[in-house]
């Protein structure tokens, strides 16, 4: 597979591509912190941290706008081809998915503000924490796949999405049981259920990022390649 380890003749072009990757890494870091903090705030019912996290989402949005502008300007000025074109187009996709993960952190935080105290079992909160850890791990690995241009990690991220989905389904059943046991649990359980669903969506965005990483390295569509048997999730 053709990978660009030679430098561009135009060094400023090279610098711009590097800066684009750096911006994605930075944005990825912001989003990881946001999800971690939002989960912490939820579990500890920490309204102050929740507020901070919700307000911090604006920075993530600004970062996405910046990456978009940079990418569009590069397309206009450089007319990128082949690997460079895939680099820029996938950066736009990844920034979009990261922005959505940022929104999920904001939603979790806003929901936390509606919860006064932990009325339901600690175990349910732990389930959500587990969900958050797993999704966050997926996001981190997907970003690694993108920055290292490693399609193997990307395939692995897609493979593990099933784990996130299964965990969500088991949490869903658990919440239902609690709600049936005691109707006073319904409000909190519903909030937590929405949080779990949001985190499951974050996992989906991680697989989108992994797909972009796969496209960046191979030029192929991961799902088409799985369907055609070229790639096996085994």
């Amino acid at each position: 597979m053709a990978t660009p380890d030679n430098e561009h003749i135009v060094t400023s072009y090279e610098d711009e591509l590097t800066s684009l990757t750096r911006a994605i890494s930075e944005m990825g870091g912001m989003v990881e912190v946001a999800i971690t903090n939002a989960t912490q705030a939820l579990i500890r019912v920490d309204h102050e941290l929740a507020k901070q996290t919700a307000n911090g989402d604006k920075r993530v949005d600004d970062m996405q706008r910046l990456i978009d502008e940079q990418a569009v300007s590069m397309i206009a000025r450089r007319q990128p081809m082949a690997g460079d074109l895939r680099h820029i187009v996938s950066a736009i996709h990844v920034a979009n998915d990261l922005e959505r993960i940022g929104d999920i952190a904001k939603n979790l935080s806003r929901r936390t503000l509606h919860i006064d105290s932990q009325r339901v079992s600690k175990q349910l909160y732990n389930g959500v924490r587990h969900m958050s850890d797993l999704s966050l791990q997926q996001v981190k690995r997907a970003l690694d796949a993108f920055t290292a241009r490693d399609s193997k990690i990307a395939i692995d991220v897609c493979r593990r999405d099933d784990e996130v989905d299964s965990l969500y389904i088991s949490l869903f059943r658990e919440f239902l049981t609690y709600m049936m046991e005691d109707p006073r649990n319904i409000t909190d359980c519903t909030h937590l259920l929405f949080c779990a669903k949001n985190l499951e969506r974050a996992g989906d965005h991680a697989t989108n990022i992994a797909e972009a990483a796969y496209y960046l390295e191979t030029g192929g569509n991961l799902y088409n390649d799985i369907e055609s048997g070229k790639v096996s999730l085994g």
Binding site: A2, P4, M81, A82, G83, R86
Partner: peptide, 18 residues
């Protein structure tokens, strides 16, 4: 050729590396 060339020389040429 312009989105996903197979050969590295092609990639390097069309992206302005050689």
């Amino acid at each position: 050729i312009f989105t996903n060339p197979i050969n590295k020389k092609t990639q390097d040429y069309i992206t302005g590396r050689i």
